[in-house]
Design a protein around this nucleic acid. Structure first.
Length: 293
DNA sequence: AATTTATGTCAAT
DNA sequence: TTGACCTAAATTT
């Protein structure tokens, strides 16, 4: 699921695999043909993530902004084999020998499906399908997007006080505030539910009923959970002692969360059935016993 | 072969 | 608060 950890993994992967390299950029599907031309045959200089946005910076000064939205995903072919990041796609395959042309660029497979963007470099290829946003912007356009984003706990420049200044004044529920990307960037439905459970906070409390200490605990926990997500490549929020199989590796999906997708199942701590409700179009999960404060 | 599902954001009611 | 949007894979007919 593409929450913030996935975007930071993407940024790292692009920087590591293609940083400093000249790339051929095309739009096999055609919908991004004009944009692709703007960054074709340029050197990738920087890759960074802010919340759920990926920014790829080129030596011309142009930036590619990608938001995966609902179904977006990148598929890669490089020294790690064929693998993908984003919405669930087919599993990874063993590293294949990359074919290279006389110019040293890899030979990518003929595109299947709706490939919005294709990158081809000397160390691999990358295909983007189904993004909600994919556009070439200049640095002021990038700044405009980032100005509308709250602090991202995975970024060095993140300032939790900025988020707190909104939360502390707001009548909106803390559950809704955590999903607002202009308050805190990178949190999705899973991190929202799981962090509130781990902090013991009742999700319907207005932001202004959350005190500073609780906020600091919540921010620190979100930061740790996101960092784990970047490391593991998936979201796991349970502590081993709360899992049905504490030693199983990899952690089975059924043991990954405290409350998410566990409607009616017994809470891992107190056995109370987990509750779920629609809140602003998304399903909110929580334990009515552990989260009664 | 058709329908459902999965997930995030935004514009229109 | 609801629907539109982007795509592929899983599930049901």
């Amino acid at each position: 699921m593409p929450e913030g950890h996935t975007l930071h993994r993407l940024a790292t992967h692009f920087a590591k695999t293609y940083g400093g390299q000249r790339l051929r950029v095309s739009s096999p599907q055609g919908r991004f043909a004009d944009g692709a031309r703007l960054i074709d045959n340029r050197v990738l200089a920087v890759a960074e993530a802010h919340g759920k946005h990926l920014f790829l910076g080129f030596d011309s000064g142009a930036w590619l902004r990608v938001h995966l939205g609902l179904y977006g995903a990148w598929t890669f072919g490089d020294s790690e084999g064929e693998h993908s990041l984003g919405a669930p796609r087919q599993g990874n395959s063993e590293p294949k020998r990359l074919e290279r042309g006389a110019d040293g660029f890899v030979v990518a497979p003929s595109p299947t499906g709706a490939v919005r963007v294709r990158f081809v470099g000397r160390s691999g290829w990358a295909d983007l399908r189904g993004p909600a946003a994919c556009e070439v912007i200049d640095v002021s356009g990038k700044e405009a997007v980032q100005d509308r984003l709250g602090p991202d706990p995975l970024r060095d420049d993140a300032d939790p006080e900025r988020a707190w200044s909104v939360v502390a004044k707001s009548r909106t529920t803390i559950a809704a505030l955590l999903m607002r990307q202009d308050v805190i960037a990178g949190i999705g439905n899973i991190y929202r539910a799981e962090s509130l459970f781990r902090s013991g906070i009742e999700p319907h409390r207005p932001g202004r009923a959350v005190d500073l200490t609780e906020w600091e605990v919540l921010w620190a926990d979100l930061t740790a959970l996101l960092e784990d997500g970047v490391r593991d490549g998936r979201i796991i929020t349970t502590r081993p002692e709360h899992r049905a199989q504490p030693t199983a590796r990899p952690v089975p999906r059924s043991d990954a969360f405290y409350v998410c997708y566990r409607t009616g199942e017994p809470c891992r701590i107190c056995s109370t059935p987990i509750k779920a409700e629609e809140l602003a179009g998304r399903t909110l999960y929580w334990c009515p016993q552990c989260q009664s404060q």
